[in-house]
Design a protein around this nucleic acid. Structure first.
Lengths: 235, 235
DNA sequence: AGATATTCCGAACGAACGTTCGGTAAGCTG
DNA sequence: CAGCTTACCGAACGTTCGTTCGGAATATCT
């Protein structure tokens, strides 16, 4: 599975959820990346756009059929249900951001540097794939049962990676703080951007990552109460 | 308008959005808080619960009728549309949290203390009215046109209050930082809690406010790069 | 060429949606 | 008591929803 392309190239992967769709003869090499896969990827891209704009429940398959320039019935050649679309978008997005993170963490030393890489990776991918990431973030309670459990498991893994990075940091610096609280505060900061980031006004991903890393790391690494001149008690 | 009750007591206020519903005769005192208002408040409470659970688009009026123990048609005696429900919930919630904040800020001196009050007020109200606050936060792009613009205006006011508190702080301490980035990072931290806070596991509002205030203020007030022992450059 | 599998569509299905209508029962006013 | 308003409901309206079905094109293979 190629991870070389930096843009959102969606499935090209192990999805064979369609009824019993056989691998297409396995001729020479490219079993994946067939015409079918490429068309499905475009559909998922359109779907992410619509789910992002109207929300999963508010978006209709007819909206997608218009956006994709395909008939309503024709869509169902590529997937089985609307729920599949959300699942595929969320799963691919989450797996990609984690894979990219682990690639970047491989050759990184120093706990602080690794935390900075986590933040930078998150913000870069978030802003480069804003729509899919908003769908991932905003619809994180939408999927139920097995599909929902699977996505939630990936989310827990992502959480766990971040928690370990922060606990390493605390150990290295000899500090003690609540890892859980730190992770969740950090996630709040970096996930919230989908509600406000405007590329024409705001910093780009790299700059943002540096600012937020500084803000967060100062908050976590500095001991005790913040320095202040006066502290008054209320009546 | 009484602000004495700490729990969510919804309209009892200037809502006369119903067709031409006259003030009920203005007998002795209580023009508001009529039977009608109290019943509507309970309906809004149920609606917030359902919107919180299933999302605005995913929730149906039939869900609400079941939860409220009232017939589907009977609901429409109290409001004109499903959209009204969302509007009333969001408007009341937002106005209440701002009113409470301004009350608390009145007798507070010191820029840092005022920022701490902002955070504490937000988290206290958020955790005490989790469902309505999730609806406010999660459905913040759902309302369109006039209603949406009105809610968005209140949101901008809340943002502006926080921004001024932070700029005062920066001025008082002689620091310079991006107010916009600081506000949005702070909002991320404190709004994100609806995705994770579990009262059986996590700190209560007051403790959380102190922890997050410390984290944020250390991040904002300490100058330069966070202290560190080693800094390595990547290949 | 013919045979076969893939791609796509018009039309329709039943279910669920928000809302409305006509009407009933209860409460208050004089 | 009559007269009026409020509170509420069963039933239905028209629309939109996700999905399916049979078949028509189009591409691929032998």
């Amino acid at each position: 599975m190629s991870l070389t392309n930096l843009e959102t190239r969606l499935p090209s992967g192990p999805y064979n959820g369609r009824k019993g769709r056989p691998v297409p003869a396995a001729k020479g090499e490219e079993i994946v990346d067939s015409r079918f896969d490429r068309r499905l990827a475009k559909l998922l891209h359109h779907a992410a756009h619509i789910f992002c704009e109207k929300g999963y429940e508010g978006a209709s398959m007819r909206d997608l059929s218009k956006a994709a320039g395909m008939s309503l019935a024709g869509l169902y050649h590529y997937f089985n249900s609307k729920e599949d679309l959300l699942y595929l978008i969320q799963k691919h997005t989450f797996e990609t951001i984690i894979a990219r993170l682990q690639e970047r963490l491989k050759d990184a030393t120093g706990a602080e540097q690794r935390v900075r890489i986590f933040i930078e990776n998150h913000l870069e991918y978030f802003l480069a794939n804003k729509e899919a990431m908003k769908v991932l973030t905003h619809e994180d309670e939408t999927l139920k049962n097995g599909r929902g459990a699977e996505i939630r498991a990936i989310k827990r893994e992502y959480y766990r990676i971040c928690l370990e990075l922060l606990e390493d940091l605390g150990r290295e610096k000899g500090l003690q703080f609540s890892g859980r609280l730190a992770v969740l505060a950090l996630f709040g900061m970096i996930n919230w951007i989908y509600t406000w980031h405007n590329p024409r006004v705001d910093l780009n991903a790299g700059e943002l990552a540096e600012e937020m890393s500084d803000l967060f790391l100062r908050g976590v690494l500095n001991p005790g109460k913040p320095k202040r001149k006066t502290q008054k008690a209320n009546a």
